[in-house]
Design a protein around this nucleic acid. Structure first.
Lengths: 164, 164
DNA sequence: CTTGACTCTGTATTCGGCTACAGGGTCTAT
DNA sequence: ATAGACCCTGTAGCCGAATACAGAGTCAAG
């Protein structure tokens, strides 16, 4: 992957080259529109601008974007990430809050994992059983109808698949 | 809340009483609008109607709705559920297809669980470590920045929390 | 000096799974 | 005969996280 920075190849190194949005997009793998969107959502602050209004990002933005991506992967919403970042920028450490969020998230994850294990077990068991008995007449599908999954619909659609 | 069914109280029992949408909604816990929405999505077929156009559901609809709920919990999208149901109604057993879907879903779930375990472990480790070293100057938050979570962003937002 | 790549703002659209509302018609108890 | 509860259709909106597009301005190379 590592898109070697062609544009700013010269004698950069520790020069913190100001990058335009397209380059940042390429380097980060985040679409241009998404970058502007993040800015609107308060995730990126307002970058410097050229006279003509082009955004100029410094090198840090890439770290910031990595931060955002990681936080997303960890299950933070953009709003939460924005909150964390803005706390930081209000001068105070957001860490206490982050810690709280993280602890809550840990519990959620645990619960989620537990649920998924149940789903997985029940789904597998149902598939198994159902493969043995074959089709039942008059049922849409024994597989689903016969499952003992009742579990009071935990939170409705916890599984939520990613786009496929 | 519990609006005791006044309408069909008489001497029902095993009479398979035709139910109007409101009652079905109450009995199933699914909103009226959602029921009509499901119908539009092909999940419920077209129910009988009174002369004046009111939907009249038979008792089966409740099973059907349970089926739908369960399938949703198992991670099926409404579109998939609709497909399953319509295959059934096209005369053929949808089971082969369901089985395939289920098998694929099982693998997805496994992968998802694996991911979540990684997340969980890394998140916990980071929290731990970070609680020991405290705040780092110049960082938004060590917690997230210092995590070793790189894992190539599996599928983007797999965690997706339920509505909170 | 023109072409083409890039950028700007602002608005609209997508996806899934609903929920809400407007503006009617119907049914039943009083 | 009328209030009020119910039902109808059809359309619009919501959430989150983008993506797409229109119409305009900018910039560097040929």
């Amino acid at each position: 992957m590592k898109a070697t920075s062609k544009t700013t190849d010269t004698k950069d190194a520790a020069r913190k080259p100001a990058r335009k949005i397209g380059e940042v997009s390429r380097l980060s793998g985040i679409g241009i529109e998404a970058l502007r969107f993040y800015e609107k959502q308060g995730l990126l602050g307002r970058p410097a601008r050229t006279e003509s209004g082009y955004r100029l990002y410094d090198a840090e933005v890439l770290e910031r974007l990595e931060f955002i991506k990681r936080a997303q992967v960890l299950g933070f919403s953009l709003a939460e990430i924005a909150r964390i970042i803005s706390h930081k920028h209000a001068g105070q450490s957001p860490c206490a809050e982050v810690r709280d969020i993280v602890r809550a998230r840990l519990q959620e994850i645990d619960e989620r994992i537990r649920q998924m294990h149940r789903y997985r077990k029940e789904l597998a068991a149902a598939l198994d059983e159902w493969e043995q008995i074959g089709d039942l007449e008059g049922h849409v599908c024994g597989l689903i109808e016969s499952t003992t999954i009742k579990q009071a619909l935990p939170e409705k659609r916890v599984l939520k698949r990613g786009r496929r």
